[in-house]
Design a protein around this nucleic acid. Structure first.
Lengths: 205, 205
DNA sequence: GTCTATATTTGGATAGAC
DNA sequence: GTCTATCCAAATATAGAC
């Protein structure tokens, strides 16, 4: 019992550190979120923090692991099924993207990515491969199928995917920027849907 | 003569500080570019730096003034003239955007903007108004004229402008990310033109 | 595991001689 | 205008008592 309670307390503190570090890193960046601030918010001394993590960077790496851990959950069969129906494929993909945009944790991770993007080469490379390439791959598969089935006009599926994802990203960035200052995102709340409609009307046959 | 030489030297040092500060701020951000580093690169002591600027923030503000100082040079009459011809309007706008993307100083300013975007509310507000709204205004005017003249399909000009600018921004971000690591932008070098072609084909009548 | 105390480094800034 | 010397604050990190 005592052993269990101790373990729980230990685990709890570590989790609390991670939770608070996530918030602070995503608001202030790596440099801005000092060990002092993190420890103070957790309610312990800085030295106590080093019982749970080797150093500041280790905390950051554990937090930053989450940045690219929200892959789109669209299986090959789902892609196929939805793409054959045309617009629903774009709607499904976009709604997942919109969900991430407004999800608290994903929002934090996206902000952290934007803050550190120009500070870390590794992050830049992951941004290109995990963030961009993966989305383009899924989307272009869908577009390819739609073209094959005469649902949309013929074009380079990769280019079309690029065009589609770029607007999603831009909306997400704007939403994140506005929400950072607790400003209303009303004007943007339906932008995702408008994008799908516009894109569909522009390219359907 | 002596007076003149002294003046020149003084002005030169101040300009040199600004030049080096620009580079360092746009690579390391405000926090990362320490007064120490700036002075060292300039080749003077930190204390000497304070003969030219009140403090670090003053240096930064003078550097950061440039971030939004590259407005598009499209007059009302130019917009009108080009928009009546359709695609050339988009080509002209995009080429100006592409120029900024690859211009060394504009690139630095864009990187600085991205680094500090999540750190400064003022920058976020200027990003929305100066960076986004202004471009949307110019573009939507053009689209409106094109619709009136039956060159493109009918739609909300503001939405269409949003769709168009979002891809330009995304390309610019990717180019900037790649160039930061001195990576090849070959794959992206014609993306601006491809975007114009794709967009035009999607919406022309 | 947490605390107090302390070491060490880095960064912004000023005083005063030249 | 620049230099040396110096100050002060903040930040990362460790040692050792409880």
């Amino acid at each position: 019992m005592t052993e269990n309670r101790d373990k729980n307390k230990g685990a709890k503190t570590k989790q609390k550190i991670l939770k608070i570090a996530t918030t602070l890193f995503s608001q202030l960046g790596y440099r801005g979120a000092s060990v002092r601030k993190i420890a103070a918010e957790v309610g312990i001394r800085e030295s106590a923090l080093y019982n749970h993590f080797k150093n500041k960077e280790e905390i950051f790496l554990e937090v930053a692991r989450d940045i690219f851990s929200s892959p789109f959950s669209l299986s090959e069969s789902e892609i196929k099924e939805l793409a054959l129906r045309g617009k629903p494929f774009l709607q499904k993909f976009t709604m997942q993207y919109k969900m991430l945009t407004f999800d608290k944790n994903s929002e934090n991770m996206f902000r952290l990515l934007m803050i550190e993007l120009m500070q870390s080469q590794e992050l830049r490379e992951q941004f290109m491969s995990e963030f961009h390439d993966k989305s383009v791959k899924v989307l272009s598969e869908g577009f390819f199928l739609m073209m094959q089935n005469g649902l949309i006009r013929s074009a380079d599926p990769m280019l079309m995917a690029y065009e589609f994802i770029s607007t999603l990203f831009y909306i997400r960035l704007q939403v994140t920027v506005l929400r950072f200052d607790s400003k209303s995102t009303n004007a943007l709340s339906t932008q995702f849907e408008k994008h799908v409609d516009f894109f569909w009307e522009s390219n359907r046959i």
